[in-house]
Design a protein around this nucleic acid. Structure first.
Lengths: 203, 203
DNA sequence: GTAAACCGACTGTCTGGTCGGTTTTTCATA
DNA sequence: TATGAAAAACCGACCAGACAGTCGGTTTAC
């Protein structure tokens, strides 16, 4: 019987947080279980009590993080009312003062490189994308319902918009010397506005 | 004295090719020197004669591949004359029958995840991007000179276009069930055409 | 003969997972 | 409330496999 009912949840998030920090700082390939143990303040055996294997832990960590970041972007988007404004509401992606992002970008790159060879990570990537798409699709449908937009395929367009965000963000994060924040902000706005122009009812 | 003058070059490309195939198939983190030795038909000592360390070999392999793919895209683009056509000439990126791409995508994801933690790989990524940008910039400058385009910043716009390609391609490759080739082709065209519309002289 | 090219057994290190043991908590019972 | 058995939580030494790099020796080319 459990000591404290919430203990398992507490320990698990403690371990997952430690794993995320360590993976983001060093890359998944350079992280050992000992590293995570130290970061989590637990012993090897203690950690094994909660996660069967390194693989299990890593997958759980990635899933947990992308869930968190999704909920956050959902909130940010819902703070905006105008559908077009919602589509453009992800400029917080380009703010490195945000601690989530310093974890999020390395993690995303790790997931992508893993997804190229591992079905489970492909699934994690897929789910993450789908979350974004559902959000953007919501804004597009709202715009259609309000009569701001016309004739667009919400899902396909949502995927395109999200791909534009990702493409711009990748460059901005990995090669900041050549891709300033100004460039990133201007780029995604111009690209998304250009993409949406044919679908606007009031030009 | 060298046995055959060209031997070193032959062996090196032989090893690099083997490394690229193996890395692309398994991911850089899952490749051992023995794997590459087998793929290259050389022994450990033989391989060591040409590359000091795993690190050296991997970096050389990545560089070699991105060089190759750059020359190829250069040729493809120069086969098109119209500047706007040149900007849209990278649809071969969305053809998985192409053996280069089955190597290229996994490699690109590996480089990005490595670049997040290693300066040398950041440089490789940077150089690769720059090659693309120079190509696209050329097309944009040509369009300006010919009077097809106006008022655009060639470098910034080239970077945006290249980011659109990359964002779309990433989705298409890693999550093909939700991102069909049709979607990819339509997406990048719509996004790039939308981006370019304000800069066109003849609408 | 000599140097480059190549071989493959060996070594030292790293690391994930295991496992016997210890501490802590719970709870039934007196 | 005291007690003690049982379960959960946790520890860390240990093991076995994997792997990069080395090195003495062999083959090949000139």
């Amino acid at each position: 019987m459990p000591a404290i009912p919430e203990l398992e949840a507490i320990r698990k998030t403690q371990i997952l947080d430690a794993a995320l920090q360590t993976i983001a700082a060093n890359g998944h390939a350079n992280v050992t279980m000992d590293d995570i143990c130290k970061a989590a303040g637990l012993s090897k055996g203690g950690l094994a009590h909660y996660f069967k294997s390194k693989n299990d832990l890593f997958k759980a960590a990635f899933k947990a993080f992308f869930d968190r970041i999704f909920h956050r972007s959902q909130e940010t988007m819902q703070a905006v009312d105008d559908p077009m404004g919602q589509l453009l509401s992800f400029d917080w992606l380009y703010n490195l003062d945000d601690p989530d992002l310093n974890i999020g970008y390395p993690l995303l790159f790790d997931v992508m490189s893993l997804a190229a060879h591992d079905e489970d990570y492909r699934r994690i990537f897929h789910d993450w994308i789908d979350n974004w798409v559902v959000l953007l699709e919501g804004a597009l449908r709202k715009g259609l319902a309000k009569g701001h937009f016309k004739q667009l395929n919400p899902e396909a367009t949502a995927r395109t918009i999200s791909a534009i965000y990702q493409g711009t963000a990748t460059r901005w994060y990995l090669d900041p010397e050549s891709h300033t924040t100004d460039w990133a902000l201007t780029s995604f706005r111009q690209a998304i506005e250009g993409l949406m122009r044919p679908y606007l009812t009031q030009p």
